[in-house]
Design a protein around this nucleic acid. Structure first.
Length: 762
DNA sequence: GAGTTTGAAACT
DNA sequence: CAGTTTCAAACTC
């Protein structure tokens, strides 16, 4: 069972406990864990859990995960193996610790060496801890806008040095994460479990180093362990919470200057803390904190900034999944993480998807948020610009959408699942997905979603939006729908409304969770795909890591097709255009001039669209045309193979994705769903236009529920997977940690019902 | 910021 | 399923 790696990890953990750091932290702990707020935000997926819901909100999970986590990780580094192996295994923390201790002795120096850090003895230990863990967990929160500010939680004596450490082995880090993930909740009740996990509701993961990201990936890959979700980790927990008297691990400290580029944050050393004691139960407690280190850190005190990110995404159904998946997601997200993004995942809280007892984890009902994805895309545009600075970073979590690592990172990350679109956004350099935007708000306090005056909210929103706004962070302005209809972007995206929203009489709040869930169910009963991502990519289309993110997969399509008559599909009125995808046969538009691809299949025109889209279009469009064909084919395959009907797809999906790895929060979900749905489609966006941002669902396969991913062969996976979707065992499906998994997303797609329009349109 | 346009969602 | 109405985003001024 124990792999060397684990041992290492465990060793680190044990060290943590012992380490003075912990003590120190504990002493510091003025910070108390605050759980109150966060919870509300997230939705319990009561109803959502409803399996059937086609969409379980993969997106959600996706989002969360993706958003939250970003990985820096270099692709290569990631170790699939571990993840897979580990995954299967469930280690309790204690075990891990024990192992780790053992390992430590053995490793001892070696680790240091690996990390390349040389420190004083005392410091060394700390460093070790910090380092390894970080790798595993870190997420850069830096990106997150709001979070950062508020959260300064700790000052830790630094072991400064850590810097070098950052780079610790990805493997180890992974292991840790995995272990953590693996840890099973003591309570069997999933809900409780999660609650315990995420006290605050906020999820955070900060990965500074790539390795960390990888680690998450590994986690994500974990096949079976549903129990743990990175996302959970992801959820940012206020350090305080973490601290509470609990032991904390400093995962890693990053040396100043270390790899982290992330912007300001980067400079700072990061520290991750985790609660060992409660470990399993309190995974939530695990917090990664990045702190900046001064080289001189001799001083040691490093202020740790806590960048918490909250989730707003609604998992609706996904909840369970999310939690479990979250891990995955987180992974995905984490992958992205790195840099910039700090995942913010949050956009909005995830809809509640409570876990039904069963756990839907396996089943993720909820689907990712398409909207989010879309939004992400939208945002994406801005996003890049905004980048971290904006703060939105989020990227993460939520929605499933994947972030695609926009930039290099993403590419690397491809793994990283981003939450849906949003994540994508973030993925890039820091650009965080739209969702992120929302996050800040979330960040505020959960409660308040609505409170602010509408206008202010709007203003805020717009500000945020503009750049990066993103969709991720959707903000609505509903006046009559009470935010309980699909008219409401937030609701449609599976997220609760938050302050930035200017809605009136809003019921889309955690307070009205029941109502939200019921309404959602009703809507889903009418249209199981109502919450599914609107834009789907065919699996084929899914960009491989190597692919240009920019390219839009031709395959991407709007699930139902548009019905534009006056906009010529050149404005955002057009969902296809908005989603960054070309029109397809399924569209009933008139005078289609969609820059991303015309209905007739003609390549995109020179895009009139103002946006850079053109770029995308160029790439995307042309490709699209060709891709469409491919996609269609793909879809067909999927359809036939996997699911002929949407429903079928959906269900399987649900469970799958999440169950296995956790869903991604919306972003993920969305993305995932999207991608999953159709294969790779993730959003069209990836196109040049938004490329990275949203679409990038590619992300992450990681993000994708493993199930979905299931290798590429969705079918297989699906089949294997239990009805619920738990992939649990299906070997084939397993992502195994291998990156390949990511393909899992594909699975998702498969699972997703083929949309009429999507299907082949030569 | 207010008003208009647009097309999806919802309703019949 | 088609037609109509409602709704809120997108857009324009």
């Amino acid at each position: 069972m124990d792999t060397p790696e684990r041992n290492q990890i465990s060793a680190t953990l044990s060290k943590f406990e012992d380490s003075p750091v912990f003590n120190y932290i504990n002493s510091l702990s003025p910070i108390k864990p605050v759980k109150s707020v966060p919870i509300s935000q997230t939705f319990n997926s009561l109803s959502f859990s409803s399996p059937p819901s086609v969409f379980t909100s993969p997106h959600v999970s996706c989002l969360k995960e993706s958003r939250f986590l970003r990985r820096h990780i270099p692709l290569g580094t990631s170790k699939p193996k571990i993840s897979s192996e580990d995954v299967n295994k469930v280690h309790t923390i204690e075990e891990a610790l024990a192992d780790s201790k053992r390992a430590r002795h053995n490793k001892g120096e070696s680790q240091n060496t690996e990390k390349g850090i040389s420190l004083g003895d005392a410091s060394i230990e700390h460093i070790k801890f910090s380092v390894e863990p970080q790798q595993t967990l870190k997420y850069d929160t830096c990106g997150s806008p709001g979070y950062d500010e508020d959260n300064t939680l700790l000052e830790l004596p630094g072991e400064a040095a850590a810097a070098g450490a950052c780079k610790t082995d990805s493997v180890e880090s992974e292991v840790h994460l995995q272990e953590m993930c693996q840890m099973e909740p003591k309570s069997e009740d999933p809900d409780c479990y999660w609650d315990s996990l995420i006290p605050d509701g906020s999820d955070m993961l900060i990965f500074n180093s790539p390795g960390e990201a990888e680690a998450f990936k590994g986690l994500m890959h974990k096949p079976l362990d549903p129990s743990i979700r990175l996302s959970d980790f992801m959820s940012v927990v206020p350090l305080s919470a973490v601290h509470n008297g609990r032991k904390m691990f400093i995962v890693d400290s990053v040396a100043s200057g270390s790899e982290h580029e992330i912007g300001d944050h980067c400079s700072e050393p990061t520290i991750t803390a985790t609660d060992t004691d409660q470990t399993r139960e309190n995974l939530a407690d695990v917090v990664l904190v990045t702190s900046n280190y001064n080289e001189n850190a001799n001083d040691q005190l490093v202020s740790v900034t806590h960048r918490a990110i909250r989730r707003r995404c609604l998992d609706f159904e996904m909840a369970n999944v999310q939690k479990k998946n979250s891990d995955d997601n987180s992974n995905a997200g984490s992958s992205t993480s790195e840099s910039d993004e700090r995942n913010v995942a949050n956009e909005k809280q995830l809809l509640p998807a409570k876990l039904n007892g069963n756990f839907q984890r396996g089943i993720l009902q909820g689907i990712g948020l398409h909207l989010n994805a879309l939004a992400a895309l939208k945002e994406y545009k801005g996003i890049q610009i905004e980048n971290l600075s904006s703060g939105r970073q989020l990227s993460l979590p939520n929605s499933t959408s994947l972030q695609i690592s926009t930039t290099q990172e993403q590419q690397h990350l491809s793994m990283v699942p981003v939450s849906s679109e949003r994540e994508l956004d973030s993925s890039d350099n820091g650009v965080q997905p739209t969702e992120d935007c929302s996050q800040p708000s979330v960040y505020m306090t959960g409660e308040d979603f609505n409170r602010n005056s509408p206008r202010k909210k709007k203003q805020v929103q717009r500000k945020m939006e503009t750049p990066g706004e993103t969709e991720g962070c959707k903000r609505c302005n509903c006046k009559k729908s009470k935010c309980l209809k699909l008219y409401c972007e937030c609701f449609a995206a599976g997220v609760y409304c938050i302050e930035p929203c200017s809605c009136q009489d809003c019921f889309n709040k955690p307070v009205h969770e029941d109502t939200v869930l019921q309404t959602r169910k009703q809507i889903e009963s009418r249209n199981p795909l109502a919450f599914a991502p609107k834009v789907i990519r065919s699996a084929d289309s899914v960009p491989e890591i190597g692919d240009d993110p920019n390219k839009t997969p031709a395959s991407a399509r709007h699930k139902r097709g548009c019905n534009c008559k006056k906009s010529s599909c050149l404005k955002k009125y057009c969902e296809c255009y908005q989603g960054g995808v070309g029109c397809s046969i399924g569209c009933r538009c008139e005078g289609c001039k969609n820059a991303f691809g015309r209905k007739d299949g003609s390549a995109p025109v020179g895009i009139e669209t103002e946006q850079e889209e053109t770029e995308a279009s160029d790439k995307g469009v042309a490709e699209k045309a060709s891709q469409k064909t491919e996609i269609q084919n793909t879809e067909e395959h999927l359809d036939s193979a996997t699911v002929s009907t949407p429903l079928r797809l959906s269900r399987p999906l649900l469970p799958l994705p999440f169950s296995s790895k956790g869903k991604a929060p919306r972003s993920f979900v969305t993305t995932i769903s999207g991608s999953a749905l159709f294969g790779s489609q993730k959003l069209g966006k990836p196109n040049s236009l938004w490329p990275q941002s949203k679409h990038f669902q590619t992300v992450p396969d990681d993000e994708m529920p493993e199930i979905l991913l299931g290798d590429t062969s969705p079918v297989t996976c699906i089949k294997t997977s239990s009805p619920n979707g738990k992939r649990i065992s299906s070997p084939s499906c397993d992502l195994g940690s291998s990156p390949s998994r990511r393909g899992g997303r594909k699975l998702i797609l498969q699972s997703i019902p083929s949309f009429p329009s999507l299907t082949p349109h030569p």
